[in-house]
């Protein structure tokens, strides 16, 4: 269970300690990629809670979303349309939705647990 968090911390530490910077032209791409990655991550957590988690979907979604988002931003830059806004919008909405669903599932579970406890104590 703690292994994924270790990965996150390791990634953060490596990035902060090595002080890697990317040219500011590519800032947009990276920001959108980060957003896509976060969206996939929360999607994965939601799927796990709903018992529909699939490893393949998660990993492929992660990379595919990042590439798609960056590609969309690139296309937008070349066409003169801020297409990356579309990606930010889509990912942002999904991020909120996913987090909302996670919250509800957790709340329901908490309620159920409490209910069960009460039931057992009454019996």
């Amino acid at each position: 269970m703690w292994l994924p968090f270790l990965g996150l911390v390791l990634g953060l530490a490596l990035g902060l300690l090595t002080n890697i910077q990317i040219p500011s032209i590519y800032e947009n791409y990276l920001s959108i990629a980060v957003l896509a990655a976060l969206d996939t991550l929360f999607g994965g957590i939601r799927a796990q809670l709903q018992h529909v988690y699939d490893d393949k979907v998660f990993v492929s979604g992660f990379f595919f979303n990042i590439v798609l988002a960056a590609g969309l931003a690139f296309l937008g830059v070349n066409l003169g349309v801020d297409l990356y806004l579309a990606a930010i919008f889509a990912f942002g909405v999904r991020l909120f939705q996913n987090i909302a669903i996670i919250r509800r599932i957790l709340l329901t579970r908490l309620d159920e647990k409490r209910h069960n406890k009460k039931k057992t104590s009454i019996e």
Binding site: F5, L8, L10, G11, A13, G15, I20, V34
Partner: peptide, 18 residues
């Protein structure tokens, strides 16, 4: 999942640096 989270952490850190 660990690999994916590692990549996410790295991306966030790089973005923060930038």
């Amino acid at each position: 999942i660990t690999i994916v989270l590692f990549i996410i952490g790295l991306m966030i850190a790089v973005q923060y640096n930038t």
